[in-house]
Design a protein around this nucleic acid. Structure first.
Lengths: 227, 227
DNA sequence: CGGCGCCTTGAACCAAGTCAAGCTCTGTGG
DNA sequence: CCACAGAGCTTGACTTGGTTCAAGGCGCCG
C-alpha cells in the first residue's frame, strides 16, 4: 500500500475516432468506452488515481483487479470495494476524485475521458441511464457492505466476504488480493483475518488449499453465521 | 425501531396535473416533485418503506427527519444515513427497495411516483443528470462513512458524527435522533455512545446542554482525534 | 541455497460490549 | 399541582472479541 513501484505504462492506444450514433454497440456505455479508450498497465500496488486529484477519466478493468479506497490521516486505509475484469470504476459526479484506486495485482485498465462520456450522456438518454445505473449499482454494493462493517463480528465478516467471492457458483475461489487488502476491506487486522480463516477451516466450512486458493466446503454453514 | 404506531396519514394531495416543459421550475427535479407529489405524515419510528418492497415512489423530506437502514436477521440494524428537510431518499435503480426507511421523529414526506420521474428523465437530459447527481451524492456520503465504520475507534466515530451534525457552522446542535439511532449509525452500542459523549464533555470538547442539545466547545479538538 | 514478502500462530492486553442499576426527563391522571 | 409511570439516557462492574506485539513458517524468485 505504501510501496509504489510506479510502473504505469501505456500498453496501446486506439485511434481517437469521432463516435457517431450509427456505430455498432454505441448505445452501450461500455461499447462506447472500447471505441474511445486507451489501455494502460499498472503494476501491483501502483496508484491509478488518488483522492483529491482531478477526475479526468473513467476507468474499466480489462484484466487483473483494482481496489478503491479511502486513506486516513494516520496511514490506515478503508478499502471500499474491489473491481474485477469488466467492471467500471472511478466514476465521479464531481470534478475531483473522492477516493483513490490502486492495482491489487498487475492490471490492464481501459481509460476514457470523463467529459466525453458526460457529453455523450447529455445527448443520448440511453447512455445517461447507464451512467446512472452504474452509480446506483455501486451505491448498492457499498450500502450492502455497511452492515458488515457496522454490525458483524469477525467470523461473520470473513464468511460474508468468502460467500461473495464465491457467488459465481464455483466452490474453488482464487483470491486476487492479499490478506492486508481483505483486512482493510473488512475493517479487521491481517492477524484476525488469518485466524478466522483457520477457524473456518477447522469448522469444516472451508478448505485452505493455499493462502490464495480457498474451497467453500459448506456454504450453508457460512450463511448460517449471519443468523 | 420495533414498535410502529403505524399512523401514516395522507396530509394533503395536490391535483395530479400533467407536467409540461413550459412550467416554471420544471427543469429541476425537486421542482417537478413539488408539482407531482403527495404529502404524507409519518409518526415517530413508523416505517416509510421496507427492504424488498416494490420501489414505487421517490421521497423528499418536507419536515422532520428520516433514517435509511439495513436490517439484519438477528434484529440488529445498520443505519446507512439520516435525511433532513429538503433531502431526497429512497431512490432506487431497481424495481425494489434494497434498504428500509423510517421516520426518526414525526415527519412529513413528499412522495412521487418513481416511474414518472424516470419517464421525465428519459426525455429531459437535465432531469436525467439530476437523478444521477442525487445518486452520486448519496454514494459519496456512504463512501465517506465507511472509514468511520471500518477504521475509527469510538471517540473518533462520535467526534466525526458531531462535527458532521455541526457542519452548518452553528455550535449549538439539536439532535433529531435518539442515542439508539446514533449507535446504529456509528456501529456502536448506546452505552458506548453515551459514555463517549460524557468523555468528550470532560475533555471540554463539547457541552451536553441536554441529551439532545449539544454545544461544540472545541472543534479543533474533535478534528484532532482523527490524526 | 538464501533472502524476502506474506501468512500464520501465540500470548498479553485493552477497547468496546454486556448486564444491571439508577437517574432524568416528559406526559398523564388523580 | 403533584404523584406516578415509562421511555430514554447515564453510569458502574465485569467480560470478551479483536488488536497488538512478537516469533516462526511457508513459498517464491534470484
Amino acid at each position: 500500500m505504501l510501496m509504489r513501484p510506479a510502473t504505469a505504462a501505456v500498453a496501446s492506444q486506439s485511434p481517437r475516432c469521432q463516435v457517431s450514433k450509427s456505430e455498432l454497440d454505441i448505445n452501450t456505455l461500455v461499447g462506447s468506452m472500447e471505441l474511445m479508450g486507451t489501455r494502460i498497465s499498472y503494476g501491483r500496488n501502483v496508484e491509478i488515481f488518488g483522492e483529491g486529484e482531478p477526475a479526468e477519466y473513467l476507468y474499466k478493468v480489462v484484466s487483473g483487479s483494482v481496489r478503491s479506497c479511502k486513506l486516513l490521516d494516520d496511514g490506515r486505509c478503508q478499502v471500499t470495494g474491489f473491481h474485477i475484469a469488466g467492471e467500471v470504476f472511478g466514476l465521479e459526479l464531481d470534478e475531483e476524485h473522492h477516493f483513490s484506486a490502486e492495482a491489487v495485482n498487475d492490471a490492464v485498465v481501459l481509460v476514457v475521458k470523463r467529459r466525453a462520456i458526460i457529453g455523450l450522456a447529455a445527448r443520448d438518454a440511453d447512455i445517461a441511464r447507464q451512467l446512472w445505473a452504474m452509480t446506483a449499482r455501486e451505491l448498492q454494493r457499498v450500502q450492502d457492505h455497511m452492515p458488515v462493517l457496522g454490525c458483524m463480528n469477525a467470523k461473520q465478516r470473513v464468511a460474508t466476504f468468502l460467500l461473495h467471492m464465491g457467488s459465481s457458483g464455483r466452490n474453488e475461489i482464487e483470491l486476487p488480493m492479499s490478506r492486508q487488502d481483505i483486512a482493510d476491506y473488512l475493517g479487521l487486522t491481517i492477524e484476525t483475518v488469518s485466524r478466522t480463516m483457520t477457524q473456518l477451516e477447522s469448522d469444516a466450512a472451508i478448505h485452505l488449499a493455499s493462502s490464495r486458493r480457498i474451497v467453500l466446503r459448506n456454504r450453508a454453514a457460512l450463511t448460517r453465521l449471519n443468523a
